Computed example of a mutant assay.
Amino acid sequence: MADSTIDEAYERISRTGPERAGWLSNHAPMAAESLVRAGRADLVHRWLDGYADRMEERPRGIARIAVDQWRDPLGDPVRTGDWLRYFERELADEPWRDVLVRWWPRLLPGIAAGATHGVIRVGHAVRALLDAETPARVTELGQGLAYWAARWQPLAPAGAGPYGSDDPRAALDAVPRVPDQRYGIRHRLAQLADLPDWPASAAAVPRAEQTDPAVRLAAVVDAAVLRVGTHGHGDTIMLVHSATAPNAVLRTLPALPRRLWPASLAAGWAATAAVTAAYAPAVGRPAPVAGPGLDPDSVLSRAVATGDPHAIKFADTAVDTFRRGGDRAALATAAQVATDLADD
């Protein structure tokens, strides 16, 4: 049932665009995949029905993007329809893994695309494809890649030094805050280039004891999950992306050759640091405490009950963190996020 449900959901979503109201992301494919993964496949179509008024028609194209002329329209949201058609052609002609491997290093420098929703959507699609290759899942990967390409947005560059931190939590604490926090993410990320401490923070890819980039990246995700518990009140919706964006990269690594893993680690960390700089409050709050009976199933149920796609996706990521290390603080954080978003 789960397999057919996600394919049915993707087929419904494929007729819609990646955004609404000009720039707000379509969360339907990401939330649907998380629901199926959480064992809630029976809720997917009902959830999509409730979300239907937040989905718009798929945008039309302007002009065909030639294979050797992709650089100019990169990052141009007006060309979203053209990018959707471009990746339809790419994936019709080649295996999805080949397309992903070719485009991943092209897109990775623009990881801030769509407030990181481009890479998050791709990460969910890849996880579904690694379970089973179906036409609907290949189509969804193409739509995720197209959205990322259309909204491609690079961050201010990192410094050139070696990895600077053994502790991802300490590295997050050292990330500077952007001074003007009155407007949206594009305005905030534009300020990173003017922060003297940003290059060092962006280069401080936290190390784990092992040298495997996947292990390092998992440590980044885990630290970001827990930090949402103490700093998520600054802007819960935006700060959950400090964890879900690197987790999307982590979920994609098994489909990539290992030569692309170091750059993926660096980009995943940069996304976490950038969202932290843009939205984390100066002062944290006490970490939430995991009460008795709190387990992955109850946490996912709380998130699903909110109906909020950010709560659902964050719970999905927090459960990954819990299952890696058994830290119940991750579950408590996901429960807190669900409460915060339900109150909103």
Rank of each mutant, 00 (worst) to 15 (best):
A2F: 02
D7Y: 04
Y10T: 02
I13R: 02
S14G: 13
R15A: 14
P18Q: 09
E19V: 15
A32I: 03
A32K: 07
E33C: 05
G39F: 07
R46C: 04
R46H: 14
W47H: 15
L48D: 09
D49Y: 09
Y51I: 00
P59T: 03
R60T: 15
I62R: 13
R64G: 01
I65D: 04
A66G: 15
D68N: 13
R71K: 13
D72M: 11
G75M: 10
G75P: 04
G75H: 05
D76Q: 12
W83R: 10
E90T: 03
D93T: 08
E94S: 15
P95H: 12
W96A: 03
L100I: 07
L100D: 03
W103N: 07
R106C: 09
L107M: 12
A113N: 10
G114M: 01
L129K: 11
E140W: 04
L141R: 02
A146E: 07
Y147T: 03
A150F: 11
L155R: 05
A156W: 06
G161D: 06
Y163E: 14
D166S: 14
D166I: 00
P168H: 07
R169Q: 13
V175D: 02
V175C: 08
D180Y: 10
Y183N: 10
G184D: 14
H187W: 12
R188K: 10
D194C: 01
S201P: 03
A203F: 06
V205T: 15
R216P: 01
R227E: 15
V228P: 00
G229A: 09
H231V: 00
G232I: 13
G234R: 07
T236M: 13
M238H: 13
L239S: 03
H241C: 08
V249P: 02
R251N: 12
L253K: 00
R259E: 15
W261V: 09
W261T: 09
P262E: 08
A263R: 11
L265S: 07
W269L: 08
A270V: 04
A270T: 03
T272Y: 05
T276Q: 08
A278L: 08
P281H: 04
G284Q: 07
R285I: 11
R285S: 14
L300Y: 05
A305D: 15
K313F: 00
T321L: 00
D327Q: 04
A335R: 09
A342V: 00
D343L: 11
D343S: 14
D344R: 14
